[in-house]
Structures are given as C-alpha cells and as structure tokens.
Amino acid sequence: MSDEVMRKIVEIIAAQALISPEEVKPESSPEELGVDSLGLVEAVFAIEEAFDISVPFNANDPTSGEFDISSVEKIAQGVRTLIAQQKG
C-alpha cells in the first residue's frame, strides 16, 4: 500500500511538473520540480481524488499548514497519515 501511495503521488506531481515520473525524487520539493502555486492546488485536488481523503491545505500559506509539502516523501507520509485517520 505504501509503495502504491508513493507511486501515485509521484505520478500526480510528475503530471503537474510536465516531467516523467522517473525524474521525481522523494527528496525533491514540488517547487524544485517546477510545480507553481496553481499546480500545487491541482496536485492536492488530484491526491484527494486518488485516495478519497480530505487534505488540510491552504494556498494562502502552503508551508505553514498541517500538511507538509516540503518534499515528495513528506507529502507521501502525510497522505499515509490521512488515509489512516480518515479511512482506518
């Protein structure tokens, strides 16, 4: 399941950054990969749809929320937590 979470998130980020999934490293931040603020909002939407969860993310201040978006790995960790909380 965890690998599946990572694989799906990589796919979503790659689609927003217009790069191939192989280029997305777990330690990369969305910003480094070329995802702008609108792209981030779309990525969060895609994640919510893919995992049927609700992500606490405010575009006003993306870095200060409860959801860590500083790297792909952090996003995956956050999503796993949310899945456990909301669907466990």
Partner: peptide, 20 residues
Amino acid sequence: EGLRVMARDACRPFSRNRTG
C-alpha cells in the same frame, strides 16, 4: 473551496494571521 483561499473563521485583511 477548490481554490483553497478561503478563511474558515474570519476575514482578517492585513493581519499577519490572516487565512484568506
């Protein structure tokens, strides 16, 4: 809601703790 720029408690223009 989709744009994620909405405040959930109050509109606080120019306040450092504003949330949308």
